[in-house]
Amino acid sequence: MVKLVLLHKTDSIYEDEPDVVYDFPRTYLKAIEEGIGDWIVYYEPVKAGPRGYFAVARIAEVTPKPGVEGRYLARIAHGSFLRFDRDVPRLIDGRPLETALAGADGSPRSGGAVQLAVRRLPEADFARIVNLGLPADLEAQEASRYDRAAPDLSERVEVFDRPVLERLTRRAYRDVAFRRRVREAYGYRCAMSGLQLRNGGGRPEVQAAHIRPVAHGGSDSVRNGLALSGTLHWMFDRGLVSIAEDHQTILVSRNKVLGDVVDRLLPPDGRLLMPRDARDRPHPDNLRWHRENVFGQDLPGGAAPWG
């Protein structure tokens, strides 16, 4: 097995879904087959945008693309995709993060490996990129983010530096990374009510909801997330609200939710608030799964939060 860098462009002719599948030509088949079972880093090229290195995932299998000669699909392992907390630049202090892209003096090379859409990635380079995008102390950062009484970094107990791969697979860490990206994508506003509420210490009250739960095949992609207030998160998870086929209209299970509750919680136009970045907007497949498998189902036990 070998770790890889996979180039991804949103407007590419290749039909990539970074958290689901990577579409590629036969040219890269040997390299990607070597990466089956191992981790990859997604990279956005200069001409496509500013993100640089922006996510990690693990390849589960490779199959021919149905109906397209010479094209293949690298299937992403369920639950492995994770956006970086902060995108990692291509260069730091003028030097590439990938050893293969640097000359003897550390300066960027041109041509050759730089132009490859699939590049083998040494373990040390992988660890460095992931540590920059998903730092070991991310949970501590989030826990103290809005705590005015938190001590300076120099005074804090040193965070246990878990191995990179352990961090990428630990649910508690992934939940923090997912929550930070989803809430940021929606400007810390509830996607259904439109409210941007903060407590006395400035902590956002909005939560990050998985549209399709990870336990049911969902990913930790921002496109599988909605920023919701606590009450609407509860209602969404229990199928009392969902999103229509137009991907914008909020659906309400009217036989289970009182009209005055709807009036208090949802805007008059009943429209979903969308992230500014189109790449972060809910994926239609995830919304359809929620409509077909959660919305309008029998309500599980537990009192409604509006009492």
Rank of each mutant, 00 (worst) to 15 (best):
P135I: 04
A150L: 02
V164R: 05
G112F: 03
G187H: 06
D161M: 10
N131V: 03
Y173C: 03
A127Y: 11
R156K: 13
V182R: 04
V176G: 07
R148T: 11
L197P: 03
P151N: 04
Q196T: 08
R167Q: 12
R181A: 14
A143G: 03
D137N: 14
M192N: 08
A191K: 05
T169N: 09
S154C: 08
G194I: 00
R171V: 14
Q196I: 03
A136T: 10
R162M: 14
P122E: 04
A191L: 06
G194W: 01
F178N: 08
A136V: 10
V157S: 15
V164K: 04
F160D: 15
Q196Y: 03
D125P: 01
R180D: 09
L138I: 11
F126K: 01
V118E: 01
R128L: 11
F126T: 06
P135R: 08
R162Q: 14
G133C: 00
A185Q: 05
R183L: 11
E142W: 09
L132Y: 03
G187A: 05
E158C: 08
R180Y: 02
E142Y: 11
L138C: 04
R183T: 13
V182D: 07
Y146F: 15
S144I: 06
R183C: 13
R162P: 01
A191S: 13
A124R: 12
P122F: 00
Q141L: 11
A177N: 06
A117R: 07
I129Y: 04
A136G: 07
V130K: 02
L116S: 14
S154M: 10
V157D: 15
A140I: 05
T169E: 15
T169P: 00
R120T: 10
Y186W: 09
R162A: 15
E142H: 10
V159K: 08
E123T: 09
R183S: 10
V176W: 02
A136L: 04
R128K: 13
S154P: 00
E158P: 03
L138V: 07
A191P: 03
R180I: 07
A191T: 07
A127C: 13
V159S: 12
V182S: 09
L132N: 06
A140S: 13
S144Y: 08
C190G: 09
L138M: 09
A185S: 11
V182N: 07
R156D: 10
E184Q: 12
R181F: 00
L132S: 07
L116M: 14
R189Q: 12
A117P: 00
F178D: 08
R183K: 13
R145F: 02
R181Y: 02
E184V: 03
F178E: 10
M192H: 03
F178H: 06
Y173L: 03
L116F: 08
R183H: 05
G112Y: 02
E158V: 12
E123S: 08
R198M: 09
P163R: 03
P122T: 02
Q196G: 15
R167K: 09
L195H: 11
L134V: 00
G112D: 13
Y186C: 05
R180V: 10
